[in-house]
Amino acid sequence: MLDFPNAKINLGLYITEKRADGFHNLQSCFYPVRWCDALEILPSEREAFDMTGLPVPGNAETNLCLKAYKLLQQDYNLPPVHMHLHKVIPMGAGLGGGSADAAYTLRILNQLFELKLYDDALENYARQLGSDCAFFVRNEPVIATERGDVFTPVTLDLSSYTCVVVYPGIHITTAEAYGSIKPKQPTCDMQMLLKQDVEVWQDVLKNDFEEALFPKYPELLQLKEKLYEAGATYASMTGSGSAVYGLFKGDAPDNLLFPARYAVWQGQL
């Protein structure tokens, strides 16, 4: 069975407090985009996992796809499978690619072996794998709170916008990003911010990590400014970086060019 785990962008991201368990609480809108990996899972005589595409740090045993399989296997005695992941979504980019791979593994296994797990149950498994994994079970726009794993549905249609996502090849670890942040409560309600026209988001919808990371990585600020200069209605870093995206009303300009070492995706939302 073949499926295509997709990325997400953050529309606003506020780090609100440090938790007793060492994680952070946040507020953000998660919005799916169609930059995708490819994941195939087939029944097999022996367990196997292999990857192509972008190189993934670490060994296969630490991959979230394999961890997701092991998690379900504990409760459902799953037979061996052969998993093949073709990695396209950049890592360390704030796009949630690894989390999507894990959630899609749960979704595929649920369908392949007719486990009859509802979305709520799949989300509970996904929460054990990573803070934003559960988002990719339903894969719909939400306001995420707490660790990024508690969701409130949000009515938000950006289908008239073209999204350009640019990853400049700067790998920012979660530890580095959060080590630079000073949690604080946002001054505005996320639901109210998103109800405003996209044209005013530039002034009101912020990603807290930009203040911490732009001075250290000025290339990211330059990239955001370039998207605005090209006519983006709204531009922001996504997640804890380092991908930056721009929302363009209608089509993106044809002359929007980036260095060859950048990874770029664009498409309708």
Rank of each mutant, 00 (worst) to 15 (best):
P218A: 09
G179K: 07
M192V: 11
L221I: 04
L221P: 00
E140R: 13
I143H: 00
Q191P: 00
V165K: 01
D149I: 00
V204N: 11
W201C: 08
P183C: 10
R127T: 11
L115C: 09
V204L: 12
E211A: 14
E225H: 13
Y178N: 10
V154E: 00
C133S: 13
A144G: 06
L117S: 09
Q202C: 08
R138V: 05
N207L: 06
D157A: 07
A144F: 01
V150Q: 14
E176L: 15
A144M: 03
E225K: 15
L158T: 04
A175T: 13
A212D: 10
I143Y: 00
P218S: 09
E211R: 12
E146S: 04
T155N: 14
D120R: 13
K216H: 10
L220M: 12
Y217Q: 12
Q111P: 02
D208Y: 02
G130E: 05
L205E: 07
R147G: 04
Q111W: 02
T174V: 09
D208I: 04
G179F: 08
D189I: 06
D208L: 03
F151P: 05
L129C: 08
G169P: 08
L205C: 08
E219V: 13
C133Y: 04
T174M: 03
D197F: 00
L156E: 03
F136I: 05
I172F: 04
K206S: 06
E199R: 14
L194H: 01
E210P: 09
Y167F: 15
F209T: 07
L223M: 12
L129I: 10
T174H: 03
Y118K: 15
D132F: 01
V204Y: 12
V165F: 02
D197S: 15
K195R: 15
S160L: 11
D149M: 01
P141M: 02
I170M: 03
F209L: 08
L194G: 01
E123V: 05
P215H: 09
Q111M: 11
V137A: 03
C133D: 06
I172R: 03
L221G: 15
I170G: 05
K184H: 15
T162G: 06
V204G: 01
G130Y: 03
P215T: 09
T173R: 11
E211L: 10
G179T: 12
Q202E: 14
T162M: 05
F209N: 04
S131N: 11
Q185D: 13
V142N: 00
